[in-house]
């Protein structure tokens, strides 16, 4: 049953993405930047999905510390890993975009740098988990570090903003509205890329979660094998 829902969601994601890509390909080119601007339809939703993932990781970590239910720990790992994949996608697409618009692969501006620091922090989270053997200790320490990382990211952002910025500000929802409404809908609409990517993230997280279950089963089997 659960598998069928997953397959259904996965198929829906693929259909949505095909629809969105078709739609986006039909849009006219942006005046000053040309075709490369269309990367925004995946660049921005990827960042938002990653941000959502880190928020869910925070909630799951806090819930784990309160309830000590290992389900939440599994959610935290799964969602962090998926978020890292999306953030990596965001960084790479951003870097390629920057090469055309700013002429460099990597401009050390606010969002780029804080996204990178965020990535490193959460990668540290995964490494920390891998290094701790004892399951309870691993879950507790990882949850604490996840909370730490979540607090740190806004401060990192602030500090780098003090530095200087080159990254364009948000172009959505502003009153002078340089972004056409049907383009906004292609990202944020109910059938837009953001929705598709969030669904994809959900599917991946659920798969990752079931793997975490298998991992636990494997661990207990190993213990039994040792005991014999």
């Amino acid at each position: 049953m659960r598998n069928n829902i997953l397959y259904g969601l996965g198929a829906a994601v693929i259909l949505l993405l095909v629809r969105d890509i078709n739609l986006i390909a039909g849009f006219p080119q942006e005046a000053s930047q040309g075709a490369i601007f269309k990367i925004i339809f995946f660049h921005v939703p990827m960042a938002i999905t990653a941000m959502l993932c880190s928020s869910v990781a925070l909630i799951a970590s806090v819930m784990f510390l309160i309830t000590r239910n290992f389900k939440y720990d599994a959610v935290a790992v799964a969602v962090t890993e998926v978020g890292l994949a999306f953030l990596l996608g965001n960084l790479v697409t951003g870097s390629i975009w920057a090469r055309i618009i700013w002429g460099v692969w990597w401009a050390w501006d606010v969002r780029l740098t804080s996204a990178l620091v965020c990535w490193l922090l959460y990668a540290g989270y995964l490494m920390l988990r891998r290094a701790i053997e004892e399951p309870t200790q691993r879950a507790v320490f990882a949850a604490c570090f996840s909370i730490f990382a979540f607090i740190d990211v806004p401060i990192v952002y602030l500090s780098i903003r003090l530095f200087r910025t080159q990254h364009p500000g948000p172009v959505f929802f502003t009153s002078n509205g340089s972004f056409p409404p049907d383009w906004t809908a292609a990202i944020f609409g109910p059938l837009g890329t953001l929705m598709a990517l969030m669904m994809l993230a959900t599917v991946l997280t659920v798969i990752r979660l079931s793997q975490e279950d298998s991992q636990r089963e494997l661990d207990s089997l190993r213990r039994m094998a040792h005991a014999m």
Partner: peptide, 21 residues
């Protein structure tokens, strides 16, 4: 990181990104 194998490696990996600000 106190009772982790590879403690010396893990500590900088965790601290330096958090210390950016």
């Amino acid at each position: 990181t106190v009772n982790i194998r590879l403690r010396e490696v893990m500590l900088p990996m965790l601290t330096y990104p958090a210390l950016v600000p």
